[in-house]
C-alpha cells in the first residue's frame, strides 16, 4: 500500500474560521484543532469539550486480581487514607476520589508489591474489555508500552493460560513495561522490540486477537497534558496519520481469519481514527467493522463524514469516548474482523 503524505495533508487540511481562531485564543489551542471540534460538534458542544479539557481527571486503580481481590485492596488503600469509588462497568477498578498527603498512589507498598496498576483515567480499560470479551487464547499488543492495556490483558488471560505478546519500538518505554510485568508478577507475557509495521515479517505467528493502540497525537488527553493544545501542527498530524495507516494495514496480516483487531487511539481526531480505518478498508477487502460486544457506556458513534470527507458507513460502529459527555479521556476505538 503506497501512502502519499502530500495527499493526506491535502485531505486533512483545515482552514480555521474567525470563530475558531477566537475560541482557540481563549483556550490556548492551535486554531485548526478547534475548527475541527466545531465542524464535528457544533459551536456550543465544542465549547463544552474545551471546558471539559480544562478539568482535572481522576486516576484509576486497577486491581491485580492474580494477587489480591478488589475488596481487600480497596480496604487496604482506604486504611491508608485514599477515598475510592468502584467503576460500575469494570469492577476490579476504582476511581481515586481523594488521597492523603502521603503516600501517593504510586508509592504505597501495595503498589510496589504489584497489587495494582495506576491508569491516568478509566478510558484505557475499555479496549481490553472489548477485545477479550469471552475470549481465551493469545493476543498481540502491537504498540504495548507503557503497559496499562498489556498488563490488564495479561491479567484477564491469566486463568486460561493465554499469552500477551507485548511489542513496542521504543526501548525506554519497553523498560517501564517490563518493570510493570515484573512488579505485578505477570508470567504470561512476551516482550519484543520491533517496529509494528515490520512485525509481520518477523513474527511467524498469527493471532485471533490483536490490539493496535497506535502512537498518536494524544488529543484526548489534553486535560493531563495541556502542551498537546499546541504541540501537533497539521503537518505533524499528517505524518502521524501516515504512520497509523501503515501500522494498521500491516498488523492486519497478523490476524487469523475470523480474528478481531481493536484499533484504538487516545485521540478524538477523526484524521487519526475514522480516516485511518477508512483508508485501510479501501485497500483491504478482507476486513470488516464490527459492533462492540459489550455496552460498557453509552458510547458515541464513529463518524461517517467529516468536513469534505466521506467514510465507509460501517465506521458508525466505531466508538467515541468524549471528555465532555463521558467525563473521561477522549478515545476512539474501532473493532475490525478479518473475513474468512
Amino acid at each position: 500500500m503506497n501512502i502519499d503524505l502530500a495527499e493526506i495533508y491535502r485531505e486533512i487540511y483545515v482552514e480555521p474560521s474567525r470563530e475558531a481562531i477566537e475560541l482557540s485564543m481563549k483556550y490556548g489551542y492551535l486554531p485548526y484543532i478547534v475548527q475541527r471540534y466545531i465542524d464535528i460538534l457544533g459551536h456550543r458542544e465544542a465549547n463544552k469539550l474545551l471546558e471539559a479539557f480544562e478539568k482535572p481527571v481522576k486516576s484509576v486503580v486497577r486491581t491485580n486480581t492474580i494477587l489480591i481481590n478488589p475488596s481487600e485492596l480497596k480496604e487496604r488503600l482506604e486504611y491508608l487514607g485514599f477515598k475510592l469509588e468502584t467503576i460500575s462497568w469494570s469492577n476490579e477498578s476504582f476511581r481515586v476520589i481523594s488521597q492523603p498527603k502521603s503516600p501517593t498512589i504510586g508509592s504505597t507498598h501495595e503498589y510496589l508489591k504489584g497489587y495494582y496498576y495506576v491508569h491516568r483515567d478509566a478510558s484505557s480499560l475499555i479496549p481490553a474489555h472489548l477485545l477479550l470479551h469471552e475470549f481465551s487464547g493469545n493476543v498481540l499488543d502491537a504498540c504495548a508500552a507503557p503497559g496499562g492495556k498489556a498488563t490488564f490483558m495479561a491479567q484477564l488471560l491469566h486463568r486460561t493460560n493465554g499469552v500477551v505478546f507485548a511489542n513496542d519500538l521504543v526501548l525506554y518505554r519497553l523498560k517501564a513495561l517490563i518493570g510493570h510485568f515484573m512488579r505485578m508478577k505477570l508470567n504470561n507475557v512476551i516482550v519484543t522490540c520491533s517496529d509494528a509495521r515490520k512485525l509481520k515479517d518477523k513474527l511467524n505467528k498469527k493471532f485471533e486477537r490483536v490490539l493496535v493502540d497506535a502512537p498518536c497525537s494524544g488529543e484526548g488527553r489534553i486535560s493531563v497534558d495541556p502542551g498537546r493544545k499546541t504541540r501537533t501542527s497539521l503537518l505533524d498530524l499528517a505524518i502521524m496519520v501516515k504512520r497509523e495507516i501503515e501500522i494498521l494495514y500491516n498488523t492486519v496480516d497478523l490476524l487469523e481469519p475470523g480474528g478481531v483487531l481493536v484499533y484504538v487511539t487516545c485521540s478524538i481526531a477523526p484524521e487519526e481514527n475514522e480516516y485511518v480505518v477508512n483508508k485501510v478498508l479501501e485497500h483491504r477487502s478482507d476486513l470488516e467493522v464490527i459492533e462492540p460486544p459489550l455496552k460498557l457506556l453509552d458510547y458515541g458513534k464513529g463518524l461517517t463524514e467529516y468536513r469534505n470527507l466521506r467514510f465507509n458507513s460501517e465506521l458508525e460502529k466505531c466508538i467515541r469516548i468524549w471528555p465532555h459527555t463521558h467525563q473521561l479521556f477522549g478515545y476512539t476505538i474501532c473493532l475490525l474482523r478479518k473475513k474468512h
Binding site: 517490563i178 510485568f181 515484573m182 512476551i190 519484543t192 522490540c193 518477523k202
Partner: peptide, 20 residues
C-alpha cells in the same frame, strides 16, 4: 534479568519472556 526462552523467536529482539 534472566528468563526462560520457550518460543525461540529468532527474528525478533525479545526482551522478556514469561518465566522470570
Amino acid at each position: 534479568i534472566i528468563y526462560g526462552s520457550k518460543l525461540g523467536l529468532v527474528n525478533l529482539k525479545v526482551l522478556y519472556e514469561n518465566s522470570w
